[in-house]
Simulated scan of single mutants.
Amino acid sequence: MSQIRTIAHFDLDAFFVSVECINDPSLKGKPLIVGGSKERGVVAACSYEARKYGIHSAMPMATAMRLCPQATVIKGTRGEYSRYSRWVTEIIAAKAPLFEKASIDEFYLDLTGMDKYFNPWQWTIDLRQEIIDKTGLPISFALAANKMIAKIATNEAKPNGYMQVGPDMGKEFLSPLPVNTIPGIGTQTYQHLLTMGIQTIGDVASRKPADMEFFLGNYGLELWNKAHGIHHGEVIPYHEAKSVSTESTFETSSTDMDFIMSELVRMTERVSYELRQDDKMAGCIAVKIRYPDFETTSRQMAISYTCYDDELIPAAKDLFYKLYRKGQPVRLLGVRLSELTGEARQTNLFENTEKKTGLYKAIDAVKGRFGKNAISRARTI
């Protein structure tokens, strides 16, 4: 007989909005939208006060402004979201035996077996309070027997609340909820389920598995299992790749700043490309300089998560000039990107990055076909 699991799901409430309100308390209690300008773009996040008007994330900004003309709109501070997310991650990592960072503001913790030593419910309450006390961020959680139920229960506990669903109560808890509460059910599938007379999760559970399979194929069977509270998703241990780096030792030590800068740009382009190939972003950049006497110095700086050359190159140049001993010949130059993660792309939601992403995909496609050096900035030639 398999062991009953204990899974906690933590979710930072209206994360972007909460960070903005901490940094500017005058925004608290207002219908607030994070997402660029009133005239263009989409809603990246909105306060609960704004949600009362029907505003939600991914809504066109023009629509949001029609629904609530008095809403306060701010562009957002991407670096702050990264910083607060790292802070919460560090607090959880210091306490949880096994956790998964599902997104910039969402975490799963596997507490199975902890009941031999602690009360998992009280332990989780205490961890939530520690996060609130240290960061000031509101956060909700739920405790359940699997990831799916824990996530759904967290949404029911919001805002800034918590709840527990017993191991034998999963089906009963899910039954009255709308069927599109199940993660992964999109608009089209939801409409199809409504035409089948299915409105709640309980309606799915009451159908025969064969009927669900007939109408929706294998996905129908998957939904039937989920409606009965059956879900086997594992908590994937969180780890970030340590770094990607490159360095170059010059044949002859050089004081030629044009040459040195072209090398710095070339190396930054190279590690940025590697980052994108791994679908990662970096939160820290470092530059290393070695002089002819083999004295080696390096300097790093935290940055807003990115994988784009045009954002990383200025940071690399800034570090170089802060580090470089003017007039001294350079023997070796290196660039390193660290604090790598795949979840931070969400911090770009409030920026119109579609054109930039498309541009880099095209550049990377050329590099992938013809080699990393097939296309590069004029500065490096």
Rank of each mutant, 00 (worst) to 15 (best):
R5Y: 09
H9Y: 01
F15V: 01
F16V: 06
S18A: 15
D24P: 06
S26F: 00
S26H: 12
L27R: 01
K28A: 13
G29S: 10
K30E: 12
L32I: 07
V34W: 00
G35N: 10
K38M: 01
R40D: 03
V42W: 05
V43L: 09
S47T: 06
E49V: 00
E49R: 08
A50W: 03
T63C: 01
Q70S: 15
A71R: 03
G76Y: 02
G76A: 09
T77V: 11
T77A: 12
Y84W: 06
R86A: 12
V88N: 07
I92A: 03
A93C: 02
A96E: 03
E100F: 05
A102G: 13
A102C: 01
I104A: 00
D115F: 05
N119A: 04
W121L: 09
W123V: 00
I125E: 15
I132R: 14
K134S: 12
K134E: 14
G136F: 08
G136K: 14
I139R: 00
A142G: 11
A145N: 13
N146L: 13
N146F: 08
N146P: 12
M148A: 07
A153F: 09
T154C: 09
N155T: 03
E156A: 14
E156C: 13
A157M: 00
K158V: 01
N160T: 06
M163Y: 03
V165T: 10
M169V: 02
M169C: 10
T181F: 04
I185V: 15
G186W: 10
L194T: 03
V204S: 06
A205T: 05
P209Q: 15
F215H: 15
G220T: 05
W224T: 07
W224R: 06
K226S: 10
A227I: 11
P237E: 12
H239A: 13
H239S: 11
E247P: 06
E251T: 12
S254C: 05
D256Q: 09
D258Y: 03
D258H: 11
M261K: 01
S262R: 13
E263V: 10
M267T: 01
K280S: 11
C284S: 14
R290P: 01
Y291S: 07
D293M: 08
D293S: 06
T297D: 08
R299D: 07
A302M: 14
S304N: 10
T306D: 14
Y308R: 08
Y308I: 08
D310C: 12
D310M: 12
L312V: 13
L312R: 08
I313S: 00
A315I: 07
A316E: 05
K317W: 10
V330Q: 06
R331F: 05
S338G: 12
E339W: 02
T341G: 15
R345P: 02
T347C: 05
F350G: 13
T353W: 00
T353C: 11
E354F: 04
G358T: 09
G358Y: 01
Y360M: 10
I363Q: 10
V366R: 03
K367N: 04
K367A: 05
R369C: 09
R369E: 08
F370W: 15
G371I: 04
N373A: 11
N373I: 01
S376L: 10
